[in-house]
Amino acid sequence: MTTLEPATDAAQDNLAALESEAIHIFREVAGEFDRPVILFSGGKDSTLLLHLAIKAFWPAPVPFPLLHVDTGHNFDEVIDFRDRVVEQHGLRLVVAKVQDWIDDGRLEERADGMRNPLQTTPLLDTIAENKFDAVFGGGRRDEERARAKERIFSLRNAFGQWEPRRQRPELWNLYNGRHRPGEQVRVFPLSNWTEADVWNYIAREKVELPSIYYAHRREVYQRDGMWLAEGPWGGPRPDEVVRELTVRYRTVGDGSCTGAIESTAATVDEVIAEVSASRLTERGATRADDRMSEAAMEDRKREGYF
């Protein structure tokens, strides 16, 4: 087991600065927009977003609802955690179920079984239906190249599409939320955080996460270099051998495209040590949906995805 040194004063100062920036962003949005919403899946980044939102407005309740675009291919542990957190804090949760869009013909199931790429239409429809004008997401610049290009306040057009040429400068923590009727702004309070920052903050604040972020035994099979779990999304194929391994998840999404990693990191400190030694981001290591093309994420962002 790896023993971690106590966090340095500089590291604690960095976390304090990141926290302060995020809380400032939440309060700015509350003051500038009429109908904000937080994207919340129960994953670590959206859980951290909610934790920061609670801090930003305490002792008042969080003044806007949560939105989960539910692929129907989620891990049971994550959905149970999501519902428990919502009940614990007395929050309103809006759920857009991809299955509803498939059932009524607005979407078609993909041949590969992945549903992450199908989230865009339910997301945009739900934003329009509820007239949400600011949508908080947990995206970070260190995750993926397309996310590294995006501002903290990311203007989207009336179709929810990202237009890089319309990105606005953000100097001295001044954020421009102006938008035309029908447009929306995606807001990323964690833009400047790294995966290590997220885990160090989780350790400092003792933020609870779904159990699958820590080492556990699970039946998995290997596909395209990733360990996938059996579930309603299909698999394994006849030539794919199921093994029971000690694994954990670095990121949580649609079960058909989110891979586990072999790991014995069962505590926050052990996860921090493991993340510190990794040369790959969590999406680069375990997300098949980002491997569909060199510009997979950017293509989806242009269509309206996060």
Rank of each mutant, 00 (worst) to 15 (best):
P238H: 08
L15F: 07
G182P: 01
K131Q: 15
D254T: 00
W58D: 15
R283V: 09
E28P: 02
E32D: 14
G113H: 11
Q99L: 11
G31H: 14
F33C: 15
D299P: 03
H24V: 00
V185L: 05
E208Y: 01
T258N: 05
W101T: 01
P122Q: 08
E21S: 10
G259Q: 07
P122I: 08
G284S: 10
R180Y: 06
E219A: 14
P65K: 09
T258V: 03
T251Q: 06
Y201S: 02
D9Q: 14
A22K: 00
G113K: 11
A196I: 13
L171H: 08
V252G: 01
L245Q: 12
I272D: 02
T281W: 06
G31S: 15
L52H: 03
R166F: 15
R165F: 11
A296E: 05
R168F: 06
R140K: 14
D289T: 07
D290P: 02
R166L: 15
H73A: 08
G255V: 01
T194F: 14
V98G: 05
I54P: 01
L18D: 02
L18R: 03
A56P: 08
R115W: 10
L155H: 10
P169D: 06
N74C: 10
D142A: 13
R92P: 07
D239M: 06
E262R: 14
H51Y: 07
H51E: 08
P181N: 14
R237W: 07
V198M: 13
R35T: 11
T246Q: 11
A260Y: 04
R156V: 09
F153E: 06
Y305A: 10
W193T: 09
T8V: 07
A134P: 09
R168P: 05
V242G: 00
E274R: 03
L174G: 11
V98N: 02
R279D: 13
K97S: 13
D269C: 02
H24G: 07
F40A: 10
R156P: 06
Y249P: 01
P232H: 14
G42I: 02
Y249G: 03
P59F: 15
E5D: 14
S191R: 11
I272S: 03
V242F: 10
E219N: 13
L124D: 03
D112I: 07
E77H: 09
L228S: 08
V62I: 12
R166T: 10
S41F: 04
D254W: 04
R115A: 13
I54G: 02
N74S: 12
F33K: 15
A158L: 12
A296C: 08
G255F: 01
T246A: 13
R141T: 11
R217Y: 11
R140F: 13
R165V: 08
G90F: 07
R204D: 04
F306P: 08
T3R: 12
D254Q: 07
G255Y: 00
D80G: 09
L171T: 05
D125L: 05
